[in-house]
């Protein structure tokens, strides 16, 4: 029984994750590079073809509307009913389950994604209103198998426990670090991140990770 161990079906922590970690942890030169890999635009992943969007050749079913979204650099087409929120479309229609549902009411931040670079609560946003928007989810942060500096910093600082709020924390952190209207002090970061609840209470490490990632990113996205 030497079959490849697939975490998605068998559970557990894997070699893949570990190798990823070594690769990225070992890449201490990343920050010094003039054009860091992670600073490339989301279009970098456009070449990747999604496994196939859940859209039929025929017209949308009655009551459904067909919309195009640019998700993590990939053009996606999906039929949505008006009452479908972006969170559920990402998770249930597009298979991007990295974005989490913690309350479904805008009260926890677990569903935070970037829309045209801005952090929003995807649970309160009608999917149909996002025609042609650029949406970045947690799945869209890695570049060429390397974690984004914020993801990397979260790992090194153990800025999570259960991991459930983590996607939202990271997406908010990316937005915070790219928003020059938000101050750089610990207090400013804490305030700006306060819409992302971490019930495990890993807040101290999250703050450390965000501030550390700021240094790594040196102004890059």
């Amino acid at each position: 029984m030497t079959e490849y161990f697939d975490p998605k079906t068998q559970g557990g922590a894997t070699s893949k994750s570990r190798r990823n970690f070594l690769k990225t942890v070992g890449a201490s030169g990343v920050a010094a590079a003039s054009t860091p890999l992670w600073a490339q635009t989301t279009q970098a992943r456009a070449a990747e073809t999604p496994e196939g969007d859940p859209v039929k050749a025929s017209a949308p079913a009655p009551g459904m509307s067909r919309i195009q979204l640019n998700v993590n650099g990939v053009e996606r087409t999906v039929d949505v009913a008006p009452q479908m929120v972006l969170l559920d479309v990402l998770r249930n229609e597009l298979g991007l389950t990295g974005t989490k549902k913690g309350c479904d009411q805008g009260q926890c931040g677990a569903c935070t994604v970037l829309v045209n670079g801005q952090a929003i609560n995807s649970c309160l946003s009608l999917a149909i209103s996002h025609q042609s928007d650029e949406i970045t989810t947690i799945e869209g942060l890695e570049r060429d198998g390397e974690l984004h500096p914020v993801q990397q910093a979260f790992w090194e600082h153990d800025a999570f426990q259960c991991g459930y709020c983590t996607s939202g924390q990271i997406m908010s952190a990316v937005a915070v670090l790219n928003d020059d209207r938000i101050g750089q002090s610990d207090a400013a970061v804490r305030e700006a991140m306060s819409g992302n609840i971490c019930r495990c209470g890993a807040y101290k490490n999250i703050l450390a990770a965000v501030q550390d990632a700021r240094k790594t990113m040196k102004g890059g996205v």
């Binding site: 975490p7 998605k8 559970g11 557990g12 922590a13 894997t14 893949k16 994750s17 570990r18 990823n20 970690f21 942890v25 998770r91 249930n92 298979g95 991007l96 389950t97 990295g98 974005t99 989490k100 549902k101 989810t137 947690i138 799945e139 942060l141 890695e142 974690l147 993801q151 979260f154 790992w155 090194e156 153990d158 999570f160 991991g163 459930y164 983590t166 996607s167 990271i170």
Partner: peptide, 21 residues
Amino acid sequence: KPRIDGALKLSGGADYTADIN
């Protein structure tokens, strides 16, 4: 030791119950 499941949790790859379809 950084967690061995870190990359999965940090990249949206960890399969929590509601993620399984």
